[in-house]
């Protein structure tokens, strides 16, 4: 039996760009270039490694996002994933994490899966809760925030480096895992990979295909509401001195003036 892996990847505004909000207080996606979230590259990488270690595996990359989100899927395909699913629907605009997890869960069920691999957090929302929500919705074990992961004989094992302790975890498939940026650098797509990706299938699904009502998602269907977004005032310019041999003492004097010493 082939191991069916679904990797959830998000298309996000470039963190080094000038990210801001649109008038409806959703993330503005027009003025900043988008890309495959760097943290989801780690998920693709681990999926590829798991697939390489398995006798027979198939990797589907899945995204919920606007038209341009296809770029993220193409990148993941060029890294080596086999096929892609793109959930796209105008009614999805403004969906919050609860709605996104619902859509992803339905799309994962429709695709069929033994293992779902996510990144640790999206680089725009940075909530880091979606993998847990998927596990809850799918009713399968969550094995999250792993810096090491492997699959053998239908069991997923991994290392979770928590605040208080390092834990070794284990669960039977099917399961949802998320991997951190400590799990190992993601590979660069090869030229061959990029060419091959162009021919790989990308399936498009909309809300109807997933039996989801428009009012369960989108800005109106969101279970949270952003009332305001304000740009943080720029920090007032500080004092900058060049060290001419007294820099350490000058800094100490500043710290003393601020009562830190």
């Amino acid at each position: 039996m082939s191991l069916r892996i679904v990797v959830c990847v998000k298309y996000v505004p470039d963190a080094t760009g000038d990210r801001h909000f649109a008038d409806d207080l959703t993330v503005d996606r027009d003025d900043v270039d988008g890309l495959l979230s760097e943290l989801d590259e780690y998920a693709v990488e681990q999926a590829l490694q798991i697939a390489e270690d398995a006798d027979d595996a198939e990797i589907t990359v899945l995204t919920v996002g606007p038209e341009d989100a296809k770029d993220a899927l193409r990148k993941a395909l060029s890294m080596g994933a086999d096929k892609a699913v793109h959930v796209e629907d105008d009614d999805l605009h403004g969906t919050d994490v609860m709605g996104t997890s619902l859509v992803l869960a339905k799309a994962i069920e429709k695709t069929g899966y033994d293992l779902v691999v996510c990144g640790m957090a999206s680089t725009d929302g940075t909530m880091g809760v979606l993998p847990a929500l998927l596990a809850e919705r799918l009713g399968v074990p969550q094995v999250t925030l792993l810096s090491e992961v492997s699959v053998e004989d239908g069991v997923v094992k991994g290392r979770r480096d928590g605040d208080a302790a390092t834990e070794q975890l284990e669960a039977s498939l099917p399961a949802v895992v998320s991997v951190t940026d400590q799990s190992g650098e993601a590979r660069y797509p090869s030229f061959k990979g990029i060419m091959a990706a162009k021919k790989k299938p990308v399936e498009s699904l909309d809300l109807d295909d997933l039996d989801i009502d428009a009012d369960e998602v989108g800005l109106e269907g969101a279970w949270t509401k952003v009332d305001s977004a304000a740009e943080r005032p720029a920090r007032t310019a500080g004092t900058i001195v060049k060290d001419e041999g007294e820099g350490g003492k000058q800094l100490a004097a500043f710290l003393a003036s601020q009562k830190f010493i």
Binding site: G238, I240, V241, D243, G245, G247, G248, L251, A252
Partner: peptide, 19 residues
């Protein structure tokens, strides 16, 4: 920064710690 020192940390940090 509220206060910045442009310099080599191997010079500045020991002096700062001492001070």
């Amino acid at each position: 920064v509220d206060y910045g020192v442009v310099g080599d940390l191997f010079e500045v940090v020991p002096q700062l710690t001492e001070e």
